[in-house]
Nucleic acid binder design. Structure first.
Lengths: 225, 225, 225, 225
DNA sequence: TATGAATGAGTGTTCATTCAT
DNA sequence: AATGAATGAACACTCATTCAT
């Protein structure tokens, strides 16, 4: 065996590879795969690479995941849930606007902390490789957000038009912010993220002044969905 | 599948397909690869698949492109240039707003006509596989657009903040529209594309009282999704 | 061809061929490649052929060698070292002549035992495919031999002229012998090998009688090399 | 068509590629292939390369040769005949020694003039690719030389043992000289070529002085061949 | 649970050869 | 005689997955 690598900073006190419990191994694999998949892409990342980075043997992957594709999906769902959880745990505020800003800011913090998560879910989701469960998990996140938007609609803060549309519009702009934060092009404390979050709200907000007048009923919307 | 295919309209006078002129073969390859790459992804598309779909032998690919990666980049540049060209050819209007709406609408028409182009450039660009020339071509398009935004800034129509930021913001929302149009979730004549284009402008427009002009009724929204 | 081969003498206790230890597999590959390369040439030998002859899957080659070229070089170096070792282990005699005859004879024995080794190193060395390490290994062998020739020069047994030249001359003739022995055109106990070995010595020996006179200075030799 | 090359120095007066007569084309192909084959090896040289170097289209090769292998063999036979011709045309001298020295010197001149010829015939003959005609041509050359050696035997100048053996021995050493001259390691006017030619003769010459004692009968020779 | 040597179908690419022009 | 686009079998090499240990 040519090179045994000891990743920087790890105080390797045990000469023989420590008896890791299964949980730890699984997590190491998830971490390794997440980093590899988001930095090189799924297809460009090989299972030997994942194993090496996780510090385990090639075969070990298959004790925890039935296939490379399942590994991806497991990771994906975990990543999506992080964002879903944030939406659920962000307390609603007096205004929808404030509420959504909070969510965006917290998501931004996730992006700053764990860029890979953002890349996997928002920047370059491996759409064609996702299974039903993963798609459902993503839809759940979207729905959770849509609830917030919908509440904004009933309070008249959100402009006319279907809530799901404004959810997507808002997401699209927040995605831009997350991407830039994840790639460290923007720091969370800079003005750019805030500007984009603001404009995300503006793009779905009911117009001020005249526009803020009571919205016409949307009951008649024959929106297909 | 019949073993002799006669593409629409071509008066196939030659019984054997040998001796197509080079131009035609190259174009068939580009078309086949574009469709495959955008529907399955680059890595999932194999050279035998590309060749089969183009109706040529595998080796023929390499008479026209030095590698699969170069094929991708050639296609990508071609696709980007289509959008750049639209920006360049769209005449400027009295207002920046109108100008940008025009561009968005024309891009939308491209999306409706040739979905693959949109997918390649906006929906899932193969970022990590692009060479310098391709990146430059993309940057050119962005810059062309930025000029328009900048002119809007000087006329006071665009909100405070750097022009490149608002370019990206606008692009982000137009991207949503293009994606939905490309996937046929939205038709160009529907209201959703228009709504998103509007909100794209709103998200970068300087906040005015003027904007609050009476909106047309939304009652007719036949938004597909 | 039976689907389970049991190479001579191996007490095949395991019914399925999986889990051979690495050493064995590598050696089988080396053997297979050596035979193929020397009988058909490097380019005419394909990796499927090598694998089949070694009784392993094609991919297995690449667990032991990084490329077909590296496989060749590994084999080449191993072969060269056999001859180098013989030179090193042959004890020097009273006369240089005797010493070199010994070496030639032992080399001849190697040729009789393992013809492929001779073909690879002397008959048709794959010169343009050798890497630096391989070239160095070959040079080492030559140098080891040159030492012997040099000692013959100082004792006056070897004719005037540079030692490296006579080394090459001697090698050239011994090469003829090795080739014929390797191809079984000559058996080691026949007179032809002996005759050639004799003439190899004669071609570099100082002349008897008249020629054994004190050697002229070699200062004037403008031999390019 | 990307690049049209105009090989150095050719005063390309005719704008369209000159109407070459067949003879000329064939010769250009032979020359190009000879150079390529001897510098890179047969397998490493591709037919497109040969065609490009000859300044003709790929398909043109097959108007003059039925296959790449036949091209090689045609070239090989031509090369061998050059050396055969030299042997035939070198007038015999008073002594066999002088005669053979003459031949060696003339061959050396060929090597200096046209290194590729020597490489193809002596340094790295493509043994496994030669057809019967080529092998026969080579044998013819050898036989022509053997005649000279045989005449040396009957005059007592050549040592005891079969003429064909001494022919091979002599060839082996002359081959060394030719190789070095061909690679420009040695110039023909240097002493090394001469030294090696001398020693080539010595290795097959009957011993002078003491060694010139009556030769033992050759009846006992059990030389395999 | 973990290992890692082995697998073999599949990849992108090459190239000697053909043939309509 | 000459062209060069097209061919397709073959190539070296990869990698997700298996399984004896």
């Amino acid at each position: 065996m040519p090179h045994t690598s000891n990743p920087a900073g790890t105080p390797d006190t045990t000469p023989k590879p420590r008896r890791r419990d299964a949980k730890q191994t699984r997590e190491r694999l998830v971490r390794a795969a997440l980093e590899l998949f988001t930095s090189q892409g799924y297809h460009a990342s090989t299972t030997p690479q994942v194993a090496r980075r996780a510090g385990v043997a090639e075969g070990t992957i298959y004790r925890h995941f039935t296939s490379k594709e399942q590994l991806l999906n497991d990771i994906y769902r975990g990543a999506v849930r992080v964002f879903t959880q944030v939406v659920r745990e962000t307390p609603s505020k007096a205004s929808c606007r404030e509420h959504m800003m909070d969510i965006a800011v917290r998501w931004g913090e996730v992006a700053a902390t764990d860029a890979a998560l953002v890349k996997l879910v928002f920047v370059a989701p491996p759409t064609s490789l996702l299974d039903d469960a993963s798609r459902k998990a993503h839809e759940e996140m979207r729905l959770e957000l849509e609830k917030v938007v919908a509440s904004g609609k009933s309070s008249g803060e959100v402009r006319a038009g279907p809530a799901y549309l404004w959810t997507d519009v808002w997401l699209q702009l927040v995605r831009l912010m997350l991407e830039r934060v994840a790639t460290r092009e923007w720091a969370t404390q800079h003005s750019a993220p805030k500007q984009v979050i603001d404009s995300a709200w503006d793009s779905i907000a009911a117009a001020k002044g005249v526009r803020s007048a009571p919205q016409p009923s949307e009951a008649s919307l024959p929106v297909g969905r």
